[in-house]
Amino acid sequence: MAFILDNLAQSLIVLGILALVIEVAVLGFATFVLLFLGLSLIFCGTMMYAGLLTEDWLTALWVNALLTFVLALLLWKPLLRLQQSSSGKALSSDFADIDFVLEADLDENSKQYHSYSGIQWQLKSEQPLSKGTRVKVVKKDVGVMWVKAI
């Protein structure tokens, strides 16, 4: 504990880097709390190291509380917009290019499944399809293959 108190500025910087690594590597920017905290710890440690702030726990506590709050106010909406932005167009992949023959009739009420790559996928179609129809996967959702006749 004496080592941390004697090297408070460096300890804050290390804790800030650790918080950023956890936010990015473990949480994948799912929450921004550790991002704001990590940045404030790094800023506070740097200011203490440069001699702009006194090196004591009370100063570190108040400066980090204030910096975390300010960073959250400034960065919350831009980061949220960045996290939610998407192009809006569906991505194509080789997965969507498979075709097969239906083993049973398919309509909006049927619960038909198709095994592909070791997973049971529920089949759905915008129009009713009869047994024996050759279909192609046109879209995929979580656990669902959307098919149409070819």
Rank of each mutant, 00 (worst) to 15 (best):
L53F: 14
L74R: 00
L67A: 05
V147F: 12
D107V: 15
T68D: 05
L123N: 12
Y113A: 02
E126S: 08
F100W: 08
L82V: 13
L27N: 11
L82C: 07
W146A: 12
E103Q: 12
Q122E: 06
L35N: 06
P128F: 09
G28W: 14
V70E: 01
V63G: 00
V138L: 05
L67R: 04
L18A: 10
R134G: 01
T133K: 06
G132V: 02
Q127V: 06
A9P: 06
W121F: 04
G88E: 11
K111Q: 11
V70H: 06
V26E: 02
L12K: 08
L129S: 00
K111F: 15
L8M: 13
V101P: 00
G45K: 00
W121C: 00
L39T: 05
I17Y: 00
G132Q: 04
L73C: 12
L35S: 02
A90W: 06
N7Q: 13
L58Y: 11
L75W: 05
S125M: 12
W62L: 13
W146V: 15
N109A: 02
V135I: 08
S86Y: 14
L61A: 15
L75Y: 09
G16V: 01
K77S: 14
S117N: 13
L35Y: 02
D97K: 11
G132L: 05
G51W: 01
L18E: 10
V147L: 10
Q127G: 00
E108F: 07
M145I: 09
A104I: 00
V137G: 11
D6W: 10
W121M: 07
L67N: 06
A90N: 04
L8R: 06
F29Q: 06
Q112M: 10
I17G: 07
A19P: 06
F32Q: 06
K139V: 04
L82R: 13
E55Q: 14
L58S: 09
W57Y: 14
Q84F: 14
K140E: 04
F95T: 10
E126V: 07
K124G: 08
G45A: 02
V147K: 08
V24A: 15
T59D: 03
A2N: 15
N64V: 07
S86E: 14
Q84G: 13
P128A: 12
S40E: 10
S117R: 10
